[in-house]
């Protein structure tokens, strides 16, 4: 079996995997990082979005062996210790979830939107950018609110959210 080495949430990992292993399977089953979800397994729903070398990808549409040498960031690597990331905190504050299944992918996509589009995001931009992330509770309204608030909080170093805690 081929070996694969990568950095996941800042930690170097190495494992032997079946070539067929998807990146999402590697994260969930080999590394036991089960925050990344499998919703559709057909690259539609976005529950499996992680960052590979700084950009959002669907980890069900990439082989683990293709992440050789890559820096991978999953939802588990987003917070700092016990303190939630401003984007996570914004989802909490704005009730940006119902069942929560899509939430890890939503947050990883949200961080990618901020990277590309900045901190002042209008609803239209957020909704367009979320076209690869499905919420089956149809809770988009609060998700959009959360992302706008989280983006602003990331710019301001998060004072409003800190005060609310």
């Amino acid at each position: 079996m081929p070996a694969v080495s990568m950095t996941v949430n800042g930690k170097a990992v190495r494992a032997e995997v079946d070539s067929r292993t998807l990146l999402v399977q590697f994260l969930r089953e080999t590394l036991r990082l089960t925050g990344t979800h499998v919703g559709c397994d057909t690259s539609q729903c976005g529950a499996c979005v992680v960052h590979v070398d700084g950009v959002a990808v669907k980890s069900c549409a990439m082989l683990a062996v293709q992440a050789e040498g890559a820096e991978v960031l999953t939802i588990e690597g987003v917070a700092t210790g016990e303190a939630l990331h401003p984007m996570q905190e914004a989802f909490r504050q704005n009730h940006g979830l119902q069942c929560g299944y899509c939430t890890p992918g939503m947050i990883m996509t949200a961080l990618d939107i901020v990277r590309r589009k900045g901190h002042e995001l209008d609803d239209q931009t957020i909704r367009e950018e979320l076209e690869g992330n499905l919420c089956r509770c149809t809770g988009y309204h609060n998700i959009v609110k959360s992302i706008a608030a989280g983006a602003r909080a990331m710019a301001s170093g998060d004072p409003a959210l800190k005060a609310a805690e």
């Binding site: 976005g46 959002a56 990808v57 990618d112 950018e129 076209e131």
Partner: peptide, 9 residues
């Protein structure tokens, strides 16, 4: 094409 994550690959 596709969605933002698909376009990254």
């Amino acid at each position: 094409i596709g969605d933002p994550a698909v376009r990254h690959r």
